[in-house]
Amino acid sequence: MKRHTTGFTLIELMITMAIIAILAAVAIPSYMNYVKRGARSAAEGDMLNMAQTQERYFTNNNTYVAVAAPPTAPLAGFQNYSGGSSAARKYDITVAAGPTGSISTSFTVSATPSNGYSDTTCTTLTLDSTGAKGSAKGNASPCW
C-alpha cells in the first residue's frame, strides 16, 4: 500500500525563504534610495518656489526677506508661496543673505534635513539668487 503525503518539505520551505531573503536584500535598499530621492525632490521644489517668491517680493519691495525658520503659513507679502507644511516636510527651508552678504541684494535658500529624516548623500541643499545650486558635500550633481 502506497502512502501519498501532501504538503511541502522542509527543504522546499528553506529554499523559498532564501529566495525571498535575496529579493528583499535587493529591493529594500533600492526602495529606500527611491524614498530619499523623492524627499529631496520635494525639498528642491519648495526651494525653487521660495526663490521665485523671493524674486516676486523683490520686484515689489526692492529687497529680499530672510526666513529663519520653515514657514508654516504664507509670510507677509508672500501670498503666492505654496510650500508644504513644516510638520510633513523632511527638510527645513530657510533663507539668509546670499553671495553679496546682504539680504537686501541677494539671498540663499537652504534645505536642511529635519523631523528625524537624514540624507547622507546630500545633507544640506542650497540655491542662491544667482541660480547657483549646491549641497553641503560641495557637489550639486548627484543632489540636484
Rank of each mutant, 00 (worst) to 15 (best):
K2P: 14
H4L: 14
T5Y: 12
T6F: 11
T6K: 13
G7V: 12
T9Q: 04
L10S: 03
I11A: 11
I11Y: 03
E12N: 08
M14K: 03
I15F: 07
M17I: 08
M17C: 06
A18Q: 10
I19G: 13
I20C: 11
I22N: 07
L23H: 09
L23Y: 09
A24Q: 09
A24T: 09
A25Y: 11
V26T: 08
Y31S: 07
Y31K: 06
Y31M: 10
Y34S: 04
R37D: 13
A39V: 08
A42R: 10
A43W: 06
A43C: 01
E44F: 12
D46N: 12
L48N: 14
M50G: 07
Q52A: 13
Q54Y: 02
R56S: 13
Y57N: 11
T59F: 15
N60S: 15
N61W: 13
N62G: 12
Y64G: 01
P70Y: 14
P70G: 14
P70N: 14
T72H: 12
G77M: 11
G77D: 14
G77T: 15
F78D: 02
F78K: 01
S82A: 13
G83A: 06
R89S: 10
D92C: 11
I93R: 00
V95G: 00
V95A: 06
A96E: 04
A97G: 05
G98D: 01
S102E: 10
I103E: 00
I103Q: 00
S104T: 14
F107H: 04
P113E: 03
P113V: 02
S118R: 13
D119K: 03
T121V: 14
T124G: 04
L125K: 01
S129N: 06
G131S: 01
G131F: 10
A132Y: 14
A132T: 15
G134R: 07
S135R: 03
S135W: 01
A136S: 15
S141H: 08
W144H: 01
